[in-house]
Design a protein around this nucleic acid. Sequence first.
DNA 1: AACGTTGTCGGGAACGATTGCACAAATTTA
DNA 2: TAAATTTGTGCAATCGTTCCCGACAACGTT
Lengths: 338, 338
Amino acid sequence: MFEPVTIKDIAKALGLSTSTVSRALRDTHEISVATKKMVLDYAKEIGYQPNPIALSLKERRSKSIGVVVSEVANSYFSQAINGIESIAYDRGYHVIISQTHESYDREVVNVQHLASRSVDGLLVSLSSQTNDISHLKQLHDKGLPMVFFDRVAEEINTHKVIANNEKGAYEATAHLIRSGYKRIAHLTSSSQLSISIERLSGYEAALNDHGLTVNANYIKHCPHGGMIYEETESKIKELLALDEKPDAIFVAGDRLSTGCLSVFKNLNISVPGDMAIAGFSNSDVLDLFNPSLTSVRQPAFEIGKLATQMLIQLIEAKYPVEEFEKKVLDTELFVRHA
Amino acid sequence: MFEPVTIKDIAKALGLSTSTVSRALRDTHEISVATKKMVLDYAKEIGYQPNPIALSLKERRSKSIGVVVSEVANSYFSQAINGIESIAYDRGYHVIISQTHESYDREVVNVQHLASRSVDGLLVSLSSQTNDISHLKQLHDKGLPMVFFDRVAEEINTHKVIANNEKGAYEATAHLIRSGYKRIAHLTSSSQLSISIERLSGYEAALNDHGLTVNANYIKHCPHGGMIYEETESKIKELLALDEKPDAIFVAGDRLSTGCLSVFKNLNISVPGDMAIAGFSNSDVLDLFNPSLTSVRQPAFEIGKLATQMLIQLIEAKYPVEEFEKKVLDTELFVRHA
DNA sequence: AACGTTGTCGGGAACGATTGCACAAATTTA
DNA sequence: TAAATTTGTGCAATCGTTCCCGACAACGTT
């Protein structure tokens, strides 16, 4: 069943050699127009489709790029993926998506799998549990083109595309301060993630610039980045148990923001009455949330596009690229129920 | 750059033939333990990774399955994809996801692309704009294993996995009726989609069973399935312009449900005060919606798992399978702000 | 008439891995 | 001791495609 027609079948049927058929199909100049037409017509008639597997073997490239994200069920990533695809398909590249579900082990497995499937390059956003990046460094050292986006590994010298996390965090925190809140906590993902570091930095800068002090007790990390409800809940309860209970929280992640709202709803704590919240999120239904969430939105689609353009540039570079750049795109602050 | 080590390199380095190395790596009994150990050790030392492309060419299968959905940024599909992956990876299959964005043209392109990339089988949920399924029928006739889920093509004789859409729709509509609403409209996707037909049927059955008549003016189709805000808005305005304005709407899709809430919010129409809504949705943050939405939830993860199991069974079948089945899984009704 | 061009085309190796067959050496059996 | 069998390994074909070399016409040039 399912016998695809090959170049050999055409050659045999037409009494030609495979080389001639191949050349005719690729429209080489050294084939007569008559032969060319004959081959093309017959190929179309029997529905010839070139076998990309054979091509990949010969050319040693698969015309596909691997994407490593934590979850596709995350507005930020699904929008970034749309950006990635918009460029990739135009340039003739196939996109293979893999999810880490914020697990380091799954990240390692997925990366190995993609590499062994001969992807021509990798677009990576690290899992929240990833500390050791040797699985990526090893491939990068071997020459596999790689571009990081969102959660980047500073130790690997390659292109990076990120949002201006520090500025976004600054603006969100400053907004809370301007709204009159003084005890602003910070709920974030794993401490080693680049986005966590940058957002924490923006949060601290905003506090400092407005004459508020940074309270270490107000900063809580959720290593699973909001994937586990109980984790988020327990961190929030820790905040609520403090003597000087915070009156607002700046949340540093999409899943974390919605998780946060869920927790407060379940604890019957009124937002923003008892506790104000502002957070990073790319969800497009935030307006429907009760209460709606003041959010920092990242240009996810654009980030995906840019990262892909840079990756393809690396892949198709004639000579090894030595100069790498980090692109930083501005976020947008959406103030809701001001 | 990036020169992967092949079986030949091992053979040359060890003074063996490629066949011996190949057999040693696959742990055949006809290779002496000494040679086997030597090969294995050396392979590990230089980090040998078998080339799956070469394998695919020889075995004429890629150990990968293609998935065709409308959007990954849709809770139902992202959950289904998680179900698909959970089975596929266990069975050694790679998952390639493609999005149609509810466009027929993109569906055709994606399906062709997947087929030419030699996927071993296809998991398909049709786009809302798909009427003609000859692009799939042709591949199916050629012998490409295929399983439909969610939005199925009845004309193609193969396995299908769906939710009990009719029952789910019946329950949601009946719930609205029991809550006292009498003029219940129905907002749904393209009329030709299997899910639209089934949900419409459940809606009508609920009305009939409760002594209400079906009003054709109350049934509105959005061919883009909620992807285009203006389309949803105009359909809702049509409903609002009716002499006997509906007092409730049963919505038949995820994007459509949230789109619906957005429209009412923008029109300053109170839900459920002025208009009650119940709809299909798999979002896990529905509790945070304002107002929260009574929803019909599909077992998306389970549907993905089942469809994948059935597809792999088709792929690995020794003899052509002639008997196909349609699995129907129950939905769950979540009543909110009753 | 001998030679160089040009235009068309075929042969065969290569990409990396598997596998049926052949064949030598080692071992067992008659 | 000769024959038969087992054991371990190599050769070569194969998957579908491209591409480097040549082959061999039909020309035009000296």
